[in-house]
Simulated assay, not measured.
Amino acid sequence: MIDSSLLLNAGAVETSYKKGDWIFRQGDHARFYFLIVKGQVKMSNFNDQGQEFVQGLFSETQSFGEPPLFADLTYPASAIASSDCRLIKLAKNKFLDLLLSNPEISVSMCESLAKRLHYKAVMASEISSQHPEHRILTLLRYLKNEIHTDSSTPYPVDLTRQQIADMTGLRVETVIRSIKKMEKENLLSIRGRKVYL
C-alpha cells in the first residue's frame, strides 16, 4: 500500500512478531499504522466460548487496522501473527502527516478501504445464506479478484480448510465436504490437497 521507505523516512520502526503473538487486542485504542513486510496477520473476534471468527487475513505488502485509526476508535477485532512476521509501524500523528503531504497516498488508501468495506458487505450477506458452497465460492472469488492478477492460470488458494471455515462461519467438516462437492461439479480443482479456482 504505502512504500516502506516512505514510512521509515516518516519515523516508522520495523518490529518482529512470532507466530501467535498478539499485535493488538479488540478494545485497544488505535495508535499505529501497520504494514506487513514479511509473514501473515489475521484479524479475529472470539465469542464467549473462545470460538474464533476470522475477519480477514493480511499478507506481505498489505496494511491492516486503519479504520479505527482514522475515526479515533478502538479496534473491533484483535490482530494476531499467523506466522512469524515483520511489520513496519508508524505512529498515528506521523501517519496522518504523511497522508496530508502525499494526497496520492490518501486516494490510494481510500480505494483500499472502500474495497474492504465492499467485501465486508458482500460477506455479511453471504454468511446468512444457507448454502455453504455459495459462501465458500464468494470468499474464494473475492480473494482471486484481489490477489490473482493472471486470469489465464488457476488461482492457488493460500488458505487452510480451517481458515476458510473461520472466514465463512462454517465448520471445518462442512468446508471439506463442500470443497469435494464443488470439485465434482468442476467449480474448482484440488491438486495435492491444494485448492485452485
Rank of each mutant, 00 (worst) to 15 (best):
M182H: 04
V175Q: 01
P132V: 02
E126A: 07
R141I: 12
S178T: 05
G169F: 00
N186M: 10
L140D: 02
R161H: 14
K184R: 10
A124W: 06
K184T: 05
M167D: 13
Q162S: 11
T149D: 06
I136E: 00
P132K: 06
Y142M: 05
S106D: 05
R177D: 07
Q162A: 10
S108W: 06
N145H: 15
R116W: 13
R177I: 02
I127K: 05
S129Y: 02
M182N: 07
E146T: 15
S152F: 05
L139C: 13
T160C: 00
L113N: 03
S152A: 15
P103V: 11
I147W: 10
T168K: 06
S106T: 12
I179H: 07
L170E: 04
Q163R: 13
E111T: 11
K181T: 10
H118V: 11
Y155M: 04
C110T: 06
E185G: 09
V175L: 00
P156K: 06
S128Y: 04
L143P: 14
K120V: 10
S129Q: 05
I179Q: 00
P154Q: 02
V122G: 03
G169D: 03
G169C: 01
K180N: 15
V175I: 04
P154F: 03
I105C: 01
A121N: 13
S125M: 09
H134V: 14
Y155L: 01
E133K: 12
R135I: 01
D150Y: 13
H118N: 07
S125H: 10
E183V: 04
S128P: 01
T149S: 10
V107L: 14
S112F: 07
T168S: 00
S106K: 08
D158R: 09
S152H: 12
V172G: 07
D166S: 00
N145Y: 14
H131I: 13
A121H: 03
Q130E: 12
I105F: 11
K115P: 03
T168G: 00
I147Q: 08
V172C: 12
H131P: 13
L139I: 09
L140H: 02
E185W: 11
S106W: 14
S128G: 10
D150Q: 07
S112C: 12
S108D: 06
I127C: 08
A114T: 13
E111N: 12
L143E: 11
T168D: 01
T138Y: 07
S129I: 03
E146Y: 14
V157M: 06
N186G: 15
I179N: 01
I147S: 08
S151D: 07
N145M: 12
I147A: 04
I127F: 09
E104D: 12
D150L: 07
R161C: 05
T174V: 08
E126S: 11
T168L: 05
E126F: 03
S178P: 09
M182W: 05
E146L: 04
S125G: 15
C110N: 14
N186K: 15
R161Q: 13
G169K: 00
R171N: 11
L117P: 09
D166H: 00
H134S: 12
E183I: 09
P156Y: 09
H148E: 03
E185M: 14
P132C: 05
E111A: 06
Y142A: 03
L139G: 04
V122L: 00
V175N: 00
K144I: 11
G169P: 02
V122W: 01
S178L: 02
T149M: 08
M109R: 09
